[in-house]
Write a protein that binds this DNA or RNA. Structure first.
Lengths: 227, 227
DNA sequence: AAGAAAAACGAACGATCGTTCTTGTACCAC
DNA sequence: GTGGTACAAGAACGATCGTTCGTTTTTCTT
């Protein structure tokens, strides 16, 4: 889609057609990595250019010139966070497991792992960004909403694949199930951030498993049992 | 507990021992009502004293003197929101239904109703406040966390009552079920705020019902069927 | 090595933030 | 009526916000 490649830290690095790196991009990625972390704690609105600059030992104007406006910085931060999420949660499940219930289940557990391991300082970036931006119109909100739609679509797609493979019952409503699975994951993030009680992860895993079992066929139960 | 009485709009009005109203309290309540609405959209941190003052056609310093600090305004706002929530969601369920599954179910539906009817401009105040404040220490976070703990405790308590009455299966884990029910309600709020798709309410109701049915006894199923 | 292009800097802008202090105003007891 | 008391207004503070501008430093090309 875009001519971006995924780098090790999950941020994107634009490349020109012949493959040479665009110069100055290293700084930009360093900024966005820090921005995602700050925003996961302080929020996308609480992310201030001056604070971010001093944290990176650079000047406010130097940082600013990479984006041209705060709004552009925020949108870029959302995209960087999405790349990290894709790298840490989606990619492992896709690489290791074939389509179906195994892939779906693996991705959901990877999501919890990424919350538990504290990939972002303030917990799941999108859980925070969604609630923060959902009330105010503008490009930043649209960027967040687009990512959340993508995520819900991905869940729905994987569920549909599991149905097609006969691992979930054919009368399963994919959108409904995706809604509930997302709800549980988000609640795990909130519970962990608010109470720092690690028991929430076990609760989350139990809830996910029971919810999937409720719609699983015998073939699906076998897949779940093997995990 | 506190010498406060619940007023019509859900905010609290302090009374002195002989019952006379403390003067100037009307202004304070008007401020907090507006503050809760602004904070539900802009967040507790985005709530600015100057903006709030101009919205109420009063001076910044005049408003400020009611609280003495922004932090105190934020904590008071959290308490005011809790009172409104109690008035709109908890009280109706307690008044109409006796303890047990009926009360629990009624409260969960009242919660969805309060989200759907837009009691706060930015959706459920606590869903927003929780995610916003969960990362930063201080009295405001503590106030929010205390309310969320109260809410989780209330859900757990009502579930336990339903177990004791034989409406939910005795092996039901109240904390686990409370976690899942709260997850679904919160997801309804997010879905509504982000996509403005009213279908999320039907999804939420279906998910709540199916989750309760999964742990219900025959007596419990009868209660659920009658609703 | 020289010149062009890009990146970073430092200073300053108007605006708004939370907060303080002083002044004016309404009300209530005496 | 008069004095006291709580409430509200107004001006101003230092700090920080996003942003602009002109200059300097770095980097790449040739």
């Amino acid at each position: 889609m875009t001519p971006d490649t995924l780098t090790a830290d999950g941020t994107t690095a634009p490349v020109v057609p012949d493959g040479r790196k665009v110069k100055g991009d290293k700084t930009r990625r360093a900024i966005l990595t820090a921005a995602v972390n700050v925003a996961s704690v302080e929020g996308l609105e609480g992310l201030s250019i001056g604070r971010l600059a001093s944290e990176l030992n650079m000047s406010k104007s130097g940082l600013f010139s990479h984006f041209g406006s705060k709004e552009e910085l925020q949108v870029s931060t959302v995209r960087a966070a999405a790349a990290i999420f894709a790298h840490r949660v989606i990619a492992p499940a896709v690489e290791v497991h074939e389509p179906g219930l195994a892939r779906l289940c693996s991705m959901l557990l990877a999501w919890q792992d990424y919350i538990e391991r504290g990939v972002f300082a303030g917990g799941c970036f999108f859980a925070a960004a969604t609630v923060e931006m959902d009330g105010r119109p503008g490009p930043v909100r649209d960027a967040v909403a687009a990512q959340m739609t993508r995520w819900a679509g991905l869940l729905t797609e994987y569920i549909q694949e599991a149905i097609d493979r006969g691992e979930l019952r054919p009368e399963t409503d994919p959108v409904q199930l995706a809604f509930e699975l997302d709800a549980l994951g988000t609640a795990v993030n909130s519970g962990w951030q608010l109470h720092e009680d690690a028991a929430v992860f076990e609760r989350g895993r139990r809830a996910l498993r029971r919810r999937l079992e409720a719609d699983a066929t015998e073939a699906g139960l076998a897949v779940l049992a093997s995990r």
